Amino acid sequence: MSTILITGASSGLGAEMARQLAAKGHDLALCARRTDRLDELSDEILRAHPDRRVAVRALDVTDDDAVFRVFGEFAEQLGRIDKVIVNAGLGKGARIGTGGYAANRATAMTNFVGALAQTEAAMEIFREQQAGHLVMVSSMAAMRGMPKEIATYAATKAAVAHLAEGLRTELYGTPLAKTVKVTVLYPGYIISEMNDYAKPTSPLMATTEDGVKAMVKAIEKQVADACVPPLPWGPLSLVMKHAPLPVLKRMI
Rank of each mutant, 00 (worst) to 15 (best):
I4L: 09
L5S: 05
L5P: 03
I6D: 07
I6N: 09
T7E: 05
S10W: 08
G12Q: 01
L13E: 01
L13R: 00
M17K: 13
M17A: 14
L21M: 03
K24R: 14
K24V: 04
D27S: 07
L28Y: 04
A29Q: 10
A29R: 06
L30Y: 07
L30T: 06
C31A: 11
R34N: 12
R34D: 09
R37Y: 07
L41I: 11
D43Q: 15
V56P: 00
R57N: 00
R57M: 01
A58I: 02
A58W: 01
V61K: 02
V61C: 01
D63N: 15
A66I: 10
F74G: 03
F74T: 05
F74S: 04
A75V: 10
L78W: 11
G79L: 06
I81W: 04
V84L: 15
I85Q: 08
V86W: 01
N87M: 08
L90E: 05
K92T: 15
A94L: 09
R95K: 12
R95H: 13
I96H: 05
T98S: 13
G100P: 04
Y101M: 15
N104V: 01
A108R: 13
A108E: 14
T110H: 09
N111K: 06
F112G: 07
A115S: 12
Q118S: 13
E120R: 15
E120T: 15
R127G: 02
E128V: 14
Q130V: 13
G132C: 06
L134Y: 11
M136N: 00
V137W: 01
V137K: 00
V137G: 00
M140C: 03
A141G: 02
A141Y: 00
A142S: 02
R144L: 03
R144W: 03
G145R: 15
A154L: 08
A155L: 08
A158N: 13
A158R: 12
V160C: 12
A161N: 09
A164P: 10
A164G: 12
G166F: 08
L167Y: 06
R168E: 07
P175K: 05
L176F: 11
K178C: 09
T179A: 11
T179Y: 08
V180A: 06
L185W: 01
Y186D: 00
Y186L: 01
Y186E: 01
P187M: 03
I190M: 07
I191W: 03
S192H: 09
E193H: 10
M194Q: 10
D196Q: 14
K199E: 13
T201N: 12
S202Q: 07
S202V: 05
P203R: 02
A206H: 10
A206S: 13
E209S: 12
E209I: 15
G211F: 05
G211S: 09
K213F: 04
K213T: 10
V228A: 00
P229L: 04
P230Y: 00
G234Y: 11
P235G: 03
L236C: 03
V239T: 03
K241E: 06
H242N: 13
M251T: 07
M251G: 06
